[in-house]
């Protein structure tokens, strides 16, 4: 019998590659599906949101100009490190979502595989979504997809890991940076993921994770002038979704608001496509 007293972890935010507490000093209790206390999670405030936007914008330059090969390898690296922590993720998901061992394992494996799937898109999506355009004149003309910029995402409330990964990966693989508000009631897999992210060559500011209440933080992100797009996948309240869309309109943000998808199914490119811009370049052809 091991009578050692375990060392518990303090669950914090992940902003700009660091693990700060909420500047508000607030936490909230996280329980498992049997209502057993798991941890106190940081309750992010609007100022944490603001800090995350700053960190994200700072990270955008280098990440969006990194080579596609590099971004693909970084995403793949995240998958590799997740694989190493597979058991921990299974335990986290089991506690967070109340799934059995087998189902939890399937969710975690799918999440890892999803990252690998998206990692492979890094150096291909531009070939699929870009093209040359045969304009009627002496010009060479091509269109390429580029990342939209800083994306704020509300992660799915139920699918705390697979849903989260499925939201983050298509955003960042193209060179966007993300501020994601984790599942409010099930934030622990997201926090474990931040520990993976911190040790997987993901540059600081590319993935920022806030825990807390989307209804409190998201409006500030939706109205923020330096946020270019919002992903409302995890917003369950129609009213909140509407309010966020209204806020987002103030700076003409791109918005994605899907119904709750089946996260286990292989996605198409729709999610990735939601957060890229098409840039078209013309140049004359002359000697």
């Amino acid at each position: 019998m091991n009578d050692r007293v375990e060392v518990r972890k303090t669950y914090k935010l992940f902003i700009g590659g660091a693990f700060p507490r909420s500047e508000s000093g607030r936490t909230y209790e996280v329980h498992d599906t049997d209502d057993k206390f798991l941890a106190n999670a940081a309750k992010a405030s609007r100022k944490d949101g603001r800090d995350a936007v700053l960190a994200a914008r700072k990270g955008f330059g280098a990440w969006s100009s990194a080579t596609a090969y590099n971004r693909g390898q970084v995403l793949y690296r995240v998958a590799e490190v997740m694989e190493g922590r597979r058991d921990q993720f299974i335990a986290d998901v089991r506690a967070a979502e109340g799934l059995g061992d087998k189902k939890s394992a399937r969710v975690v494996d799918t999440a890892i595989d999803r990252l690998v799937w998206y990692a492979g898109w890094a150096d291909k999506y531009a070939q699929v979504l870009g093209n040359t355009n045969p304009v009627a004149g002496p010009y060479f003309n091509f269109s390429i997809p580029e990342p939209t910029g800083v994306v704020a995402a509300i992660a799915p409330q139920n699918s705390s890991l697979l849903g989260l990964v499925s939201v983050i990966a298509p955003i960042i693989v193209t060179g966007n940076v993300v501020i994601v508000v984790a599942s409010t009631l099930r934030p622990i897999p997201a926090i474990t993921l931040t520990e993976v992210v911190a040790t997987s060559d993901v540059p600081s500011g590319v993935i920022n994770v806030l825990t807390g209440d989307p209804a409190e933080i998201a409006p500030w992100l939706a109205s923020h002038g330096d946020v270019n797009a919002i992903d409302l996948t995890g917003v369950t309240s129609a009213e909140l979704a509407k309010n966020l869309e209204v806020e987002a309109a103030g700076t003409v943000k791109r918005i994605r608001r899907p119904a709750q998808p089946n996260w286990l199914a292989t996605p198409d490119l729709g999610h990735l496509r939601s957060f890229v811009e098409t840039k078209t370049v013309w140049h004359p052809l002359g000697a």
Partner: peptide, 21 residues
């Protein structure tokens, strides 16, 4: 969304047009 290099205000049905931000 549209960059004209050594030309400006050229349009074509095959060429996507639209903005950022």
């Amino acid at each position: 969304g549209v960059i004209w290099a050594n030309t400006f205000n050229r349009f074509d049905p095959t060429s996507p047009f639209g903005g950022y931000k």
